[in-house]
Amino acid sequence: MNVEGRNILITGANRGIGAAFVEEAKRRGAAKIYAAARDVDSIAAAGVERLRIDVTDPQQIAAAVEAAGDVHILVNNAGISTSTPLVTGDEESIRREMDTNFFGPLRMTRAFAPVLARGGGGAIVNVISALSWFTTPMSGAYAASKAAAWALTDSTRLELTAQGTHVVAVHMGLVDTDMSSGFNGPKVAPLAVAHAALGAVESGTQEVLADDWSIFVKSGLTLAPAERYEQILGALRG
């Protein structure tokens, strides 16, 4: 489906990848852009309809369905990272990551699937991560939540096939955003991620590998765990 002339809702639209999705949707001629964030005053983009959505709040999501009942494309982008290990880390932080990064897009998908069906099927874009396929000691909670989001994306695709909803998974390594400011290494531009993701909506592609790192990690999934992590950690050490 073309983005041009369609209505799109983007969560976490106030900065980073979400703000880039807003700009890319404008460039592709979206008819209406719902820019959603927990703090609507932090959304700087012009020409959008601002929605207050905390993806951990079912009441705000229900209100968003009422306000944006004409959506054709849903972009589940909102997410957090707390740098929490799974075995020794704070359990509440782990739950916050799961609630935002997995249950958040699940709630949005369940709420907006009927809206998309009424509009002919539409599309869902889930912004995931290459960390859905590997982890490090300090990214255990984030990786677990993104692995769950990957499974959610596959299940959503299968469950919504009958209503004609196209579901896109977007994987990438480091993106040049506030979340990655403390990390060194090559970083992909947020706009490149958004461009690839909405390009997949228009082409019918189901999975986006937005940078060399996501391509590299995906290529090793058939390896035995020890060999796979030797390869990944060796690349991380440079």
Rank of each mutant, 00 (worst) to 15 (best):
N2F: 13
E4I: 11
R6T: 07
N7A: 11
I10H: 10
T11Y: 01
G12T: 02
G12A: 03
N14H: 11
G16T: 01
G18M: 00
A20K: 08
V22L: 11
E24T: 10
A25Y: 06
A25M: 15
R27F: 00
R28K: 12
A31R: 14
K32P: 02
Y34I: 12
Y34N: 07
A35Y: 03
A35D: 00
A37R: 00
R38A: 04
R38I: 04
D41H: 14
S42Q: 15
S42M: 11
A44H: 10
A44L: 13
G47N: 14
G47C: 14
R50T: 09
L51M: 03
L51G: 02
R52C: 12
R52W: 06
R52I: 11
I53Q: 03
I53C: 04
T56Y: 00
T56Q: 00
T56C: 02
P58F: 06
Q59F: 11
Q60R: 05
Q60V: 06
A62Q: 15
A63H: 02
A67N: 11
D70H: 07
I73D: 09
L74K: 08
V75W: 13
V75T: 07
A78Q: 03
G79E: 05
P85E: 13
L86F: 08
L86D: 03
L86N: 04
L86H: 02
T88G: 09
D90M: 05
D90E: 14
E91Q: 13
E92H: 13
R95C: 08
R96Q: 13
E97H: 02
F102W: 14
L106G: 05
M108D: 03
A111R: 06
A111C: 05
P114H: 09
P114N: 09
V115R: 13
L116S: 01
R118Y: 12
V125L: 06
N126W: 13
N126Y: 11
A130Q: 11
L131Q: 15
S132Q: 08
F134S: 04
T135M: 13
T136Y: 14
S139Q: 15
S139W: 15
S139G: 12
A141N: 02
A141Q: 00
A143D: 00
A143W: 03
A147C: 13
A148D: 02
A149I: 09
A151L: 15
L152E: 06
T153C: 04
R157E: 07
L160D: 09
T161P: 11
A162Y: 15
G164T: 05
T165D: 09
T165Q: 10
V167R: 03
V168D: 01
V168A: 00
V168L: 07
A169N: 12
A169S: 15
H171Y: 11
G173H: 03
G173Y: 05
T177S: 00
M179D: 03
M179Q: 03
S181T: 12
G185F: 07
V188L: 08
A189F: 06
A192T: 13
V193C: 02
H195Y: 11
L198Y: 04
L198Q: 00
G199H: 04
V201E: 01
S203Y: 10
S203F: 07
S203T: 12
V208T: 06
V208A: 04
D212K: 11
D212G: 08
S214L: 01
V217R: 05
S219Y: 06
T222N: 14
T222G: 12
L223G: 10
R228L: 12
Q231R: 14
I232L: 14
R237Y: 10
G238E: 10
